[in-house]
Design a protein around this nucleic acid. Structure first.
Lengths: 343, 343
DNA sequence: CTGAAAGCGCTAACAG
DNA sequence: CTGTTAGCGCTTTCAG
């Protein structure tokens, strides 16, 4: 049994068909300048041999691939959710999708997108979608769109959710339930989305005529454990909050853990609201009231923007998608004030 | 559209460093035959220019890329879940991950994996992971591992979940609750996993000394709507089932819809069990009792196998990962028989 | 130790 | 209409 490790190349096809390599290439790409009969014959040979042209070789030469790249730091809930939407965006186009994962490696966290871009750009992919990139450099040679970049003032077209509005919704929901002391577990201060969520919280309070009390705000860093600890601290103060708005679902789950630890019932003794609406939010106990980001839609819109860019069209500098409140079981009216307390 | 060529190439680096292209290549790949001083100098220039070699060009020449490809038909819940596990498998290796999605295009559903493989193999990827492939051809030139292939007798190393056992667990759970008439909503008959789930159902019944009643078995095709309709039919029979085992979660959700439609309470009037344990299973109302496949682990194991293959080691022909029952709220003891009915 | 030269598989001029 | 001739950016002999 002869194992030919070598794949069939365009040369093999040319030889078998009795034509030149160039001719095969032409029929492959539907170029003019080939007689109908030779074209037919070559096609037959191609099918017969099961030949498929190598993307690599052709892209190296033609600088055109019909594939868009999606660059992610890691394949986790947010990015994979986004991929589902991205997939839908290319469904009825001639584009294919390839996803590169930096593999979550700690070593090259910052700037991974830059490195990948230059390793792939111009050759393997026609354009790229950067998911939560740390730095968004302007010129890289190919069209680029960013989703939820870490810094706000990016030079590339961007898709984000309406973090400000979402945070207002969450806070207003708590306000409407009758809460007056609402704690905030903040996200990472270097992230644009985290800052906007805080802004929304403050805005809602101010609008309601309530003061912004630094004693009610703690850093949770978008992490569960940090947020749990922060919540414990918050609840240990003399005048503790009756509700907590956490900057993301993971933090909210940490807050839930803190409540459980202190023997506080959610939602009767403490209300908790999150942000994101990841699957974990419905699996928590109690199921989390949270602000939904349309993650799949974000992926879809971002790819559509990229496709427009590729087609030479203009695209808006930024698309902001709506967020909405998803009410589940972690929020309720505050307990009636204890005897002796003021209204 | 004009592609402006801003990429820095190895030639630019060579020119700037005052050495030959070959020398830069050697430094890049840590080959011997370069003096320490030149190497240092070249490295400095590389950093300074922010140069990154093109994977495409180098792979074309060297036939080695250090990337493993994951080929999926579409980016949906199962495949994206699998990606999370695959990602973890490469975390501490020198391998990178790239995912190709056929984009869910209907046109080329069958054999897409074959086409992609030959378009990429030998050049862009060192090995490939095929997710739920339709046909698994043997010789493609690069190491290949399949996850949950459609046909059972594949010639390549395969990772699957224990569908037979999982289906038994589901059926036995219903049996233990006291159900005697258990309906089955089957999956697509061309899929190996679907067949095994039916086998498990029948095996459990037989073991319990119960007959296999064709009147209790309907085709659901792994689809929600089809399964809903099938369940409605099943429940309209003279002697309807008190419980239903659906071949996947989507089908179970369809069954839930049918029950709601007919005004039957789940679980008091009808018990429902699914298979897969996708996020949708916990979001349904009521939350679904289902059989969990360790999807992430399947991805991880599969990539590990591929890595072994790449390292020249032997791997088992097939790995079967355990399934387990996850009890939620959609199952309960059957209602006490109505007056006049026999036990 | 270094660089010139020869391709990897393919496409794009340009001749015949 | 067809084939010949150059490369794309990179690695790899193999002379100097």
């Amino acid at each position: 049994m002869v194992t030919t490790h070598i794949r069939t190349t365009i040369r093999d096809v040319a030889a078998r068909a009795g034509v030149s390599v160039a001719t095969v290439s032409k029929v492959l790409n539907g170029r003019y300048g080939v007689s109908a009969t030779t074209a037919l014959h070559v096609k037959a040979v191609i099918d017969e041999m099961g030949y498929q042209s190598s993307i690599v070789a052709s892209s190296l030469r033609s600088h055109r691939t019909n594939v868009v790249g999606i660059l992610v730091a890691d394949l986790e809930p947010f990015s994979t959710e986004l991929l589902k939407g991205a997939s839908r965006a290319v469904r009825d186009t001639s584009y294919e999708l390839v996803v590169y994962s930096a593999g979550g490696r700690a070593a090259d966290r910052v700037g991974w997108e830059r490195r990948y871009l230059s390793r792939l750009g111009g050759t393997l992919i026609d354009g790229a979608l950067l998911v939560t990139p740390t730095v968004v450099d302007a010129q890289v040679g190919i069209p680029v769109v960013a989703v939820d970049p870490h810094t706000g003032n990016s030079a590339v077209p961007t898709v984000t959710a309406d973090n400000l509005h979402g945070a207002r919704l969450a806070t207003e929901h708590l306000l409407e339930l009758g809460h007056r002391r609402i704690g905030f577990i903040a996200g990472r201060p270097d992230l644009d989305s985290a800052r906007l969520r805080q802004d929304g919280y403050e805005l809602a309070l101010t609008t309601a005529g309530l003061p912004i009390d630094p004693a009610l705000m703690m850093m949770g860093g978008f992490e569960e454990e940090l947020s749990r600890a922060a919540t414990v601290q918050l609840l240990a103060t003399p005048d503790p909050p009756t509700a907590i708005f956490a900057a993301n679902d993971l933090s909210a789950i940490g807050a839930l853990a803190a409540a459980a630890e202190l023997g506080l019932d959610v939602p009767t003794e403490l209300s908790v609201v999150g942000f994101d609406n990841v699957p974990e939010a419905v699996m928590s106990d109690p199921a989390l009231t949270t602000v939904e980001q349309p993650i799949q839609l974000m992926g879809r819109r971002a790819v559509e923007m990229l496709l427009s860019l590729l087609a030479g069209a203009d695209v808006p500098e930024r698309i902001t998608l709506p967020t909405r409140l998803v009410q589940r079981r972690s929020t309720a009216r505050p307990r009636a004030p204890r005897k002796g307390e003021q209204s």
